[in-house]
């Protein structure tokens, strides 16, 4: 095993651990807000490491191939960065939209010790 393989194992192991943890969190937590905590943060973090691993893989293949084939791996790296940017900007906004829809339709946070939103009208 060389350095490339070890780097990819580490990055992908972190990514799998957090993404699976987030999906388990969907079942462990009691209400929609806490589930959003689990789902949004862990899948975003996991995707960052997954795409970092793909970039490492692209760099690894770049060292092997030459000539015209090199272009396709550079293209893979560039498009992966765009996919990561799309995820980073859309994920928190989507989570915020779901949380607001849930609160405005009257889903109460479970086990809440404080709920300031009840005063708003």
């Amino acid at each position: 095993m060389d350095g490339w393989t070890i780097a990819m194992i580490v990055l992908l192991a972190i990514s799998i651990f957090f993404i699976l943890l987030g999906t388990i969190g969907l079942h462990r937590f009691p209400d929609v807000y806490t589930r959003l905590h689990a789902a949004t943060k862990t899948t975003t973090f996991g995707s960052i490491f997954l795409i970092a691993a793909v970039i490492v893989y692209g760099a690894f293949r770049l060292t092997e191939v030459s000539g015209d084939n090199a272009g396709s791996f550079m293209h893979l790296i560039g498009m992966s960065i765009i996919a990561l940017l799309a995820l980073l900007f859309t994920n928190p906004t989507g989570a915020h939209a779901i949380a607001r829809a849930a609160r405005r339709t009257g889903v109460e946070p479970e086990q809440a010790v404080i709920d300031d939103y009840r005063e708003v009208k």
């Binding site: 899948t43 893989y57 893979l76 992966s80 799309a86 989570a95 339709t105």
Partner: peptide, 27 residues
């Protein structure tokens, strides 16, 4: 309903990650 949307959002994010992984695998 919001619980289902949270699950759907999670599935979407994972599918994007899965597609990027498959792109690297199949090149």
């Amino acid at each position: 309903a919001p619980d289902r949307v949270v699950a759907l959002d999670t599935v979407n994010t994972i599918v994007v990650g899965l597609m990027v992984g498959l792109a690297a695998y199949y090149e």
